[in-house]
């Protein structure tokens, strides 16, 4: 899906504070196709870290360190120019768009034969012919798959996953995990998985970092 040179995500000496109090600190590098798993209870600063990496850190927080993506320092870039994709807990399919419309939303504007890309992506996850459906009529698993394809179609250079499987049934969860990580690896994308579920960490080959919060 992404034919550019392999990407890597470097997190250099990152420290995030609120009112002077250290929330989270991290220094790590995620290579192409690799997944770094961050484990920690709620309140350990996982979400804050993701917000910082994606470019949504509220101004009340104070952050130090650099985020370098494929050799470019993206710390100061606005969210839409970072090339970092996000997968949330909920699939968050835009309710006012059709399934195809959701996928089209992520497609870079300059891309040619957009319709073809969308059809292929749907077929990839077993949803061929679902393009014109109202997303609200899909099952939970189907929604999750559409959300994943939407993310990949937007051609990110790195991916953040915010407990993306926590709301799925156990069976679906395994299936989605496999699907997601096989696609991410195939695309050679560095990814950062945030979770409090040990299963997630076990299922993914790669480093695991335990966050304990800054306390």
């Amino acid at each position: 899906m992404n034919n550019q040179a392999p990407h890597s995500l470097e997190l250099r000496d990152i420290e995030i504070r609120l009112d002077g109090k250290l929330m989270v600190a991290l220094d790590a590098t995620v290579g192409p196709g690799e997944t770094l798993t961050l484990m920690g209870p709620s309140g350990s600063g996982k979400s804050t870290l993701l917000a910082f990496l994606a470019g949504f850190l509220p101004p009340a927080f104070e952050a130090r360190g650099r985020v370098v993506l494929s050799g470019h320092d993206i710390t100061e870039l606005p969210a839409e120019h970072r090339g970092i994709g996000l997968l949330f807990q909920d699939p968050l399919l835009f309710p006012h768009l059709s399934v195809a419309g959701n996928l089209r939303f992520g497609l870079p504007r300059c891309m040619s034969n957009r319709a073809e890309h969308i059809q292929r992506a749907l077929a990839d996850v077993g949803l061929a012919g679902y393009g014109e459906r109202d997303p609200a009529t899909l099952s939970g698993g189907q929604k999750a798959r559409v959300a994943l394809m939407r993310l990949l179609l937007s051609a990110p250079s790195a991916v953040l996953l915010d407990e993306p499987f926590s709301k799925l049934d156990t069976e679906l969860r395994d299936e989605m995990r496999r699907l997601a990580f096989s696609h991410l690896q195939a695309a050679g994308l560095p990814s950062l998985l945030v979770t409090h579920d040990r299963e997630d960490a076990n299922a993914v080959a790669g480093a695991v970092i335990e966050l304990s919060g800054g306390r």
């Binding site: 470019g55 996000l86 939303f105 992520g106 937007s154």
Partner: peptide, 28 residues
């Protein structure tokens, strides 16, 4: 939900694009 706009941004949409294509229609 602020995640809708964040999502639009991470999908490469500009803040104005997110406003017109996501926030406005959903808040119609």
């Amino acid at each position: 939900d602020p995640r809708w706009s964040q999502l639009a941004l991470t999908l490469g949409s500009s803040p104005n694009g997110a406003f017109w294509r996501v926030r406005l229609p959903m808040l119609l």
